[in-house]
Amino acid sequence: MAQEESATTQEASSTIISPETIEKIQGIIVDNALNVLYAIVIFVIGKWIVSMVRNGIRKAMEKRNVDPALISFGTSIIYYVLMICVILAAAQQVGFQTTSLVAILGAAGLAVGLALQGSLSNFAAGVLIIMFRPFRIGDVIDAGGQIGKVMEIGVLVTVMHSPDNKKIIMPNSSIMAGCITNITANDTRRVDMTVGVSYSDDLDKVQNVILDVLNADDRILNDPAPQVEVSELADSSVNFVVRPWAKTSDYWGVFFDFQKTIKQRLDKEGVSIPFPQQDVYMHNVDSSAS
């Protein structure tokens, strides 16, 4: 019995942690806590500095009248690159080996890149848009089957507003994959219209009437001169092609106003505008003869 009590006492004494061990554990905890605290401070201050740098670069580029698309795209890239550096610095303070972390991030980046090939193609297309500038913010374009005003050129997508004020978010790869028509790139545009008159009307008179209507509109440019010519001898009408030039901002105003004005003027001049019609002839059949 005495031997069992002595064995139990020895086991209990062996389980008691020595003061030196406790001090070592406390030191490790304190050191790690300080490192974590330093890492948090590095991350918070680093993020604040990166934001300041991004805003400073944006203001400097705006003062130099840099393309807004380039400002948005460039500052985004700079922000993400600097934030990666801040994260690496904070991780190194905690105890992570930077080289190992970079290797892990590289492997993870490769895996993510393979999984997000579409996003990478959108990113590459965004870089091409910024480099070649087929359009700018504020331009009206026809691309990827959509027509709208460009509001933002992002890293992965381009944001447009349609003529009826719908927000269109289109991947950059869809834009660069096809034809891009920049509708407002030039200051002037040609307004293509067609006027059809009857075969019985005086064609010279009609041509002069159309020219008078065009010359009365101050929005129509004299150089290049408007073109009014007979373009087609259709089934029921003689068609004139009407091609005046106007400022791009006046395009739709000229187009819509001309349709109304030319109709009123031709009616006043006694010129008829034919419309599709069909003549039906009915014959009486003698039932007795049949």
Rank of each mutant, 00 (worst) to 15 (best):
M151C: 08
G106S: 07
A115H: 02
D257K: 09
E20D: 13
M282D: 02
V238H: 03
T15N: 11
S287E: 15
V209M: 06
D286E: 11
R219N: 02
R219S: 03
S121Y: 13
T15E: 12
P19E: 10
L214K: 01
I16A: 09
R265S: 01
D204C: 02
I210R: 02
V86D: 05
F123V: 10
V228P: 06
E23I: 08
L88E: 01
D31R: 13
M160S: 05
L110Y: 14
A216N: 12
N32E: 07
P274G: 06
S173E: 11
V94R: 05
A289H: 06
Y281A: 13
F96C: 04
R136N: 06
I220S: 02
N55Y: 11
G46Q: 06
H161C: 05
T184M: 06
T261K: 14
I175E: 05
D212L: 01
S162N: 05
S237G: 00
M61G: 00
R133E: 12
N208E: 14
M83Q: 11
I175T: 04
D187T: 11
V66T: 06
R265I: 03
S272H: 08
V94D: 06
M176W: 09
P276M: 10
S288D: 11
R58P: 00
I153Y: 01
V271K: 02
N55C: 01
W245H: 07
F43N: 09
I40P: 00
E152T: 05
L105A: 14
D217L: 02
A89V: 04
Q97T: 12
Y80I: 12
D201K: 05
I169C: 02
I45A: 10
T194Y: 14
D67P: 01
V157F: 06
Y199V: 08
E5T: 01
L266Y: 02
S13K: 15
A143H: 05
G95R: 07
Q117I: 13
M160L: 15
I87Y: 08
H161P: 00
T8F: 00
Q26D: 09
F73K: 04
F256H: 13
V159F: 01
S249W: 01
V213E: 09
I84H: 08
S249C: 05
G126C: 07
I40W: 03
P224K: 08
R189Y: 00
G109F: 10
A185Q: 11
M176A: 15
P226A: 05
R136D: 08
R136M: 05
P244G: 04
V50W: 03
E232K: 13
N172Y: 07
R190G: 12
A177T: 13
G253V: 08
D202C: 07
Q259S: 10
F240D: 11
E152V: 02
V66L: 09
S173G: 01
K268A: 15
K205W: 00
V271E: 00
D187H: 09
T21D: 13
